[in-house]
Design a protein around this nucleic acid. Structure first.
Lengths: 341, 341
DNA sequence: GTTGGCACTCCACTGTCGCGAGTGCCAATG
DNA sequence: CATTGGCACTCGCGACAGTGGAGTGCCAAC
């Protein structure tokens, strides 16, 4: 009974603090939220909550502020799903539907996500390693030169120039093309690479033997190209300007992190699929300097495969319910678009 | 005679102010720069400089600060070329030489430029419209489906999927490939597009007539794809953290501008080729809100064609000589790399 | 034209003080 | 035993005045 009210008080504190950015006191609380009890009672509850480490006061005789632990409890148990407004839904769909290719999808996602949440949005490009090969094309550019084109299930296209050591005729090229595609089409990247290497190690026909090596190398290179794994789009950095206070402690390290895509990737963490949104609050993250920022992220990809991750980073003091639904919605929508492609 | 010393005083003021970020007074000036005259004399000169609008004082009885006009004079007439240190040169070359493709070149340029200048660096991707076509490849993916690959002189590769309305045999494909390449190879984009349209309007052979339309459309689309024109890479935003003061007035609008690539493009301005570095100081720029920021930019591209622009944006109070040489050096180096490719 | 002297200005900094929001504790109450 | 009103206490914050110092402008002398 009292326990229940205590949680209500915590929720109220979090909500008010997020809204006002100021430590919230007992009196203001009972005024804004009809708790049906007196300020004194709330004070008792607050003292208890502080003992348990959910809230803290910046200095004696100031209002209370949620701790990371308090936000955690709030997110885990007190969050009521906040549906998006019809207007917002419409905005997401119309904006994302205009995308013409994968690059564009990612760019637009970043944009819509940052505008929706008024935070910094981060979208990872679909990872190669977990996508599958749709098709491989080999194009003769010159007798000893060909272009290897790799088309993936995510819509990504990679190409590599291949220099050969012997002239290539059309028949051999056709043979090679068929052999390679038989082996890799439909396979996930990791498997495709090993399959290709076996092919190169034991050429199944003498016609292709002289060429299979360089071609396989080029393809394997394109497949395991880690630069693509690390690609990330960032948007809404201007929202950092709203931090106002706590510039050095919060904005500076975050700005630096935004440049270091490796750090960002680590921040986003493992992709979780199936509509689950991960929330990492303050010090729970792997970086000491980012102890004042939270990350709300989720995986996305066609057929609910979590190919990549998208989310937002912002101050620990953020609107978690709203942000979570926005992230979830954008992830779903992007996944659906990738399904169709 | 006095005129000469006055300019020396202005130069000293600019240098000191850039170094210390604080209004500079007459006494401090004669101490730091061996001007050979007394503070009183300097004061007279300062009064004159203020009358002419080159410097100003934030409030009565404070030191002087250069105005935009003062910086302009400094940049135009007082700048002594500041050579880069051997270490810096080495850093630029080793860092940029590691680039594997155009994307990588741009990314690395942004990085090295922002680190060199400790400012926000902006690099525009080489514009399509002024580059030339190296090669067009057409790849049959299915009887009625082919991939059109466009390879440009800048190293950029664009591809488009083309759906046909009639089955395509190998002979027709080969014919089409030859015809297209004859028309566009070596041409600059603008010419290539018109040449393609003529080809589509008057098909020179009946074999290719049913296919030339969609293929030409796809290629023309890829060529005039304005999204690529607008592509820009930004780096070093973390350097904005050093602004410290004047956060709202300077950092916020700049952060917003960094997201709006259209604005950035306009800021960078027209590409100027041939080692000329453009400096735009404060209010000289097209945006009222960015009246506290300067832009140092120059064009770059293979064979000294100014295909695109790169530069840095920062506070009007910046180290112009150092920034200018850094921008010039990076532009030259990138141009040379594009030459080789 | 240059210089030293001098009076003046004004910002930045410091210390003091009162206000108000908020707390913790306690005794009273249902 | 949870809740409540009362009350004394704490402490941050804004206002205010006083002070020191850097810098200026002006002037008379060289």
């Amino acid at each position: 009974m009292q326990e229940e009210r205590r949680l209500a008080v915590l929720r109220a504190i979090v909500e008010d603090y997020v809204a006002t950015e100021e430590p919230v006191g007992s009196k203001a609380l009972v005024e804004r939220h009809k708790l049906g009890v007196s300020p004194a009672t709330v004070r008792n509850d607050m003292a208890a909550l502080e003992d348990e480490g959910y809230i803290t006061q910046p200095h004696t005789s100031a209002g209370r502020v949620p701790t990371d632990k308090g936000y955690r409890l709030f997110v885990d148990r007190l969050t009521t799903v906040k549906p998006m407004s019809a207007a917002e839904k419409r905005a997401v769909s119309t904006f994302l539907d205009g995308a013409v290719d994968l690059d564009d999808v990612v760019q637009r996602s970043v944009r819509v996500l940052s505008q929706l949440t008024r935070q910094v949005a981060v979208v990872q490009y679909p990872t190669l390693s977990r996508s599958t090969v749709r098709h491989v094309e080999l194009v003769a550019l010159a007798p000893r030169r060909l272009l290897a084109v790799l088309i993936l299930s995510t819509g990504r296209v990679e190409q590599r120039l291949v220099e050969l050591e012997a002239d290539l005729d059309d028949d051999a090229l056709a043979d090679l093309r068929v052999r390679v595609n038989t082996v890799v089409t439909g396979a996930i990247i990791a498997d495709a690479v090993t399959a290709l290497r076996t092919l190169a190690a034991e050429p199944p026909s003498r016609t292709i033997a002289p060429y299979v090596g360089p071609v396989v190398e080029a393809l394997a290179d394109a497949m395991s190209d880690h630069r693509s794994d690390e690609r990330i789009a960032v948007g809404g950095a201007a929202n950092l300007a709203r931090y106002g206070d706590s510039f050095d402690s919060a904005v500076r390290p975050l700005l630096e992190a935004l440049e270091e895509h490796v750090v960002l990737l680590k921040l986003l963490g493992e992709a979780t699929s199936g509509g689950m949104v991960t929330v990492r609050i303050g010090h729970e993250g792997p970086y000491e300097q980012l102890s004042a920022t939270s990350v709300v992220a989720t995986g996305y990809g066609p057929h609910d495969d979590a190919l990549a991750t998208l989310g937002v980073v912002g101050p620990t003091r953020m609107d978690y319910p709203g942000t979570m639904t926005a992230v979830r919605a954008v992830a779903r929508y992007v996944s659906r678009i990738l399904d169709e492609a």
